[in-house]
Amino acid sequence: MSFNIDFLAWRRVALIFSSIFLIVSVSSLFLKELNYGLDFTGGTLVELSYPDSANISEIRETLVNGGFVGAQVANFGSSKEVLIKLPGTVSDSLGSEIVTLLGSVSSDQDVDLRRIEYVGPQIGSELRDDGGTAMLIALAFMMLYIAFRFQSMFAGAAVIALVHDVIIVVGIFSLIEIEFDLTVLAALLAVIGYSLNDTIVVSDRIRENIRSMESDSTEEIINTSLNQTLGRTLITSLTTLLVLFSLYLLGGELIKNFALALIFGVIIGTYSSIYIAANALVMMGLSKDHLRVEEPENADENILP
């Protein structure tokens, strides 16, 4: 694949596009907030499997009569599986009580317990804090590493791209009300890793070209670099998306949101490494002087393999 696209000509359009996305994401986060899962809200969750289609309204009624007011009942994955949620509860015994109650009411004995989860209120808020901390630490480390390996402008550009990606993925989750739990948080951190992958490959090429190309125009150098790496960026995104779609389709209900977060993340990460990170470098005024004589050219020539 070889390309000759004038990416930077589109950079104002991309800027507007990203701004709109960011504004929508941030306002959705403020207005609708995130649909936090049990891991973060605390509470009780029971998943049961019925031999035939489960009668949701009957189950709801049984629960209300049994004193479990405010229980959310819904199908999970298929019509036989039922998910019962009691967010914010503080007793650790509700799960087994619900199982006993529904087991005794059901006409057939084959109600199968799939899982019970109980998360106490302190644990929920701790997990939330730890998750946020982990995210910030990850960003800080990324910035340090790039500043060390490249140059501070690249670090700034990379972090702008990462923050852009994370906000938009979280925004999408808020917007379409997908549950945000621990696995989604892990996916989000993986998005940071992935998106940075892309950004580094592009930055690496820019650095190389700044040293080797004769042109003095940063725009031209960046454009050439983007075109040179575009083939690789697209292929890697494609193979990653292939495995993510197979996880989404076959990985089961527990992995679905994890895969979804990564799918959004990979798409946005690919876009941002082209338009956001490179754009940021141009805007910050990267020039040949910034990278002159730091390393002799092709210092890497004699390294493995």
């Binding site: 730890d130 982990a134 480390f141 990324m142 590493y145 892990a186 690496d204 493995l304």
Partner: peptide, 23 residues
Amino acid sequence: FLTIWDANVTTLIVAVILLSYGT
């Protein structure tokens, strides 16, 4: 090689942070 190295080290940093913070 160097590109691969840089790209993988950063992902590894994320994985290690997940390992120490995650449950």
